[in-house]
Design a protein around this nucleic acid. Structure first.
Lengths: 199, 199
DNA sequence: CCCATCAAACTAATACTATTAGTTTATCCG
DNA sequence: CGGATAAACTAATAGTATTAGTTTGATGGG
């Protein structure tokens, strides 16, 4: 055949199709062939847009991170109290992961490329959102990185365990998350938990 | 050809070979063909031992969980103080994940089969190890599940982020983990952090 | 002790996947 | 308007999982 009529596909179109595939068929369905089918082109033509299947996976992870950051910033709009900001971040992580569970799982699987400046910029944005309220709450400079890592770890771990069904049934996970957020903020900022102040 | 001389392969041999493949070539290398090569048999012969590639992945995850639980119980041997038990569990999770990072990543990828009684038993063992010290530290019955989920989340999230290189360089991750464990135990048990008692 | 059965290997075939090389052709720019 | 480029194609290679059917070593009953 040869080149088709009309506007050609851009990398953005390819990534959008790939995101669609992940969302509708799960993270394992992502691949050159499946995305090519989604775009109604032959698999070999995918290489006009991406270097490899791995590169495609990386682009999807990057796009997912971008969407996550945008949603996070929107959610923080107008939230000024630092403690409220931390709570908003926590719930945004969980809500976003639950609404986009295939994308979230995919993000978690892709190892970040530290040479990718776009990826680094997005990660910086996420970390900045976390850093600000911690500073405002008086977490010392030297503890800041530890506190951020602790928060990221707990939130990331929770949503992964939750979305992959690793919490046994019987107790509502929403209640557990509320509990986690409360204790985590208490532990990280050094303040008292609102639910369990010692006598 | 036909059946070979000498003792035949057992499922245990197959799983052991699969574990070896994961350890030496990473979680993505696990598959019917690669494990068949490791055992010096043809891929089709693998189906005499496992039902599918997915079943093989599940068996490897189960074996990894088994090994993890065994190591955890060994580490807890002789540790009687509940707070020390929690600390031992935390460091065991991190140490085991760092020493067996491919296996750990594989475990995290496989969705648990709630119908598998062996898997359920191992998970129970792990949860029991976590539950005991929390009870001894006075975490109320109704908070127990929340506390266990919080601890699992934070530990799981930390080691996943650490092993996949998602913490940016510059600050030692060991220091962060120490900080996390301290604050987490404080937050979960309602006691004061040893590092940041309010004035 | 031999023979029938069974388990575990095999071969062969199908159907995916990713990838590379070479070809065609529409679009774009000078 | 023509040549270069970009984006599609076809074709081929190699790897993956899987099923069906075949061969054969090991094993237990008569």
């Amino acid at each position: 055949m040869g080149r088709r009529h009309g506007p050609s596909l851009s990398v953005g179109d390819v990534v959008a199709a790939a995101v669609r595939v992940v969302e509708t068929e799960g993270p394992d369905a992502l691949g050159i062939s499946r995305v090519a089918a989604e775009l109604k082109i032959k698999p070999a033509s995918m290489y006009n847009h991406v270097a490899s299947g791995e590169a495609l996976a990386r682009l999807v992870a990057l796009e997912a991170n971008r969407q996550f950051l945008t949603a996070l910033q929107a959610r923080l709009e107008g939230v000024t109290a630092p403690r409220d900001q931390l709570i908003a971040i926590a719930y945004q992580v969980r809500d976003w992961a639950n609404e986009n569970d295939s994308l979230y799982v995919h993000m978690a699987r892709v190892e970040p490329d530290h040479a990718d400046l776009d990826a680094a910029e997005i990660l910086s944005g996420i970390l900045a959102a976390l850093s600000a309220p911690l500073g405002a709450l008086g977490v010392a400079e030297g503890d800041r990185v530890h506190a951020m890592r602790t928060l990221r770890s707990a939130l990331h771990g929770f949503v992964l365990l939750e979305t992959s069904g690793q919490f046994q049934l019987g107790v509502n996970t929403g209640d557990s998350f509320e509990w986690l957020v409360d204790r985590l903020i208490a532990g990280v900022t050094g303040e008292q938990s609102s639910q369990n102040a010692p006598a």
